[in-house]
Design a binder for these strands. Structure first.
Lengths: 187, 187
DNA sequence: TCAATAATGTACCAATTGGTACAGATAGCG
DNA sequence: CGCTATCTGTACCAATTGGTACATTATTGA
């Protein structure tokens, strides 16, 4: 029988797309096999735990990507203003300028939040805290940094919801624009 | 056989809860019969169109509630500042101070958006436009009013996502607080 | 080359899905 | 009372759900 895929890691992005589009419950094995091109045999070989393990692996991969590309740079020494601008640019790229939905946000709203609650909470809490750390380094008092960071993380999620609801990705761009102007305002 | 319910309208709030908690796909007939206490017979008597008709009816009911209690007051003559404060109070009450999720937002993120796209888009567009109208009456230039209105609607949705993700309803209260302070700032 | 391991397709499973059909039961009304 | 329209439970349906079992095929390292 034909060998299809080399690495388990190769199919995580495909899996991510399926969960993003259909949510956890809606992502049926039929959808998954269709999108990944893998039969049940391969799927359950790579993920013996079934759908739950697939979703957990996808969450972990996303978490890792954000840790490396978004959170860590925010915490690192160096110009905090540049770090914030960088974060916005990477966020815009990741979410395809508002055309892509946030898997973690989708999971947060669904009943699956109970199953992956820790991963979901950690993703957002670390984003918020890393941003707050950058703002603190930039010179804001701790309370103000926390407040602005929470507002920014929340605005990104809201912008993704609204962009998709209105079918207008530009909403997302405008939200990031506002954050770029206001996050570091009043230093 | 026992008569259970008098009005079709009486079960819409129950249906709304089920869709809110499980999403469209996740809201199985089993969940629905359990929550409403109605058997399939009654359900399909009230909603011959099945789940789709149930979801549409719930969306219409929510839409109507917001039209009367939120959008119309924003558009009406009278003190725009008071209207905005009123909107925030009603929003806080409706979403149970962040403990309740927005059904329309949930639908917007899911694949059901394609099915109910018009209703979903209209809900958010009318909210944004009604708020922009109030801000314009308050004296803001049109462009600024539009920008602030979009930001506010988006912040409300984002706050609901973040509140649920972090399992911390207080996030929602803080977001509304910020909106109250900033929406009318700089007149 | 050849065994061991990794990968894969297929057939199968019980449970659940949304939905239909319909025979009863109930309620309101004259 | 009795008639009619409304309501409701039950049995049933084909399709799909997530998951298992297993024989077969590739690949790899010795």
């Amino acid at each position: 029988m034909a060998r299809t895929v080399a690495e388990r890691a190769d199919i995580l992005p495909l899996l991510g797309e399926v969960f993003r589009e259909h949510g956890y419950e809606g992502a049926s094995l039929a959808h998954i096999t269709a999108r990944t091109g893998l039969g049940k045999g391969s799927l359950y070989h790579f993920f013996p735990g079934g759908k739950e393990e697939m979703a957990a692996a996808v969450l972990a991969e996303i978490d890792g990507w954000f840790e490396v590309n978004v959170y860590a740079p925010l915490r690192a020494d160096g110009d905090p203003a540049a770090a914030v601008r960088d974060m916005l640019a990477r966020t815009d790229a990741y979410f395809r300028s508002g055309r892509r939905v946030c898997l973690v946000g989708v999971f947060a709203l669904g009943e699956v939040r109970d199953r992956f609650g820790a991963a979901v909470a950690s993703y957002f809490a670390r984003w918020r805290d890393a941003l707050a750390a950058a703002l603190t380094r930039a010179g804001f008092p701790s309370a103000q940094a926390d407040d602005r960071a929470e507002e920014a993380v929340l605005a990104i999620q809201g912008a993704l919801v609204l962009a998709r609801a209105l079918d207008d990705p530009a909403v997302f761009g405008r939200a990031l624009e506002r954050l770029g102007q206001r996050l570091l305002d009043g230093l």
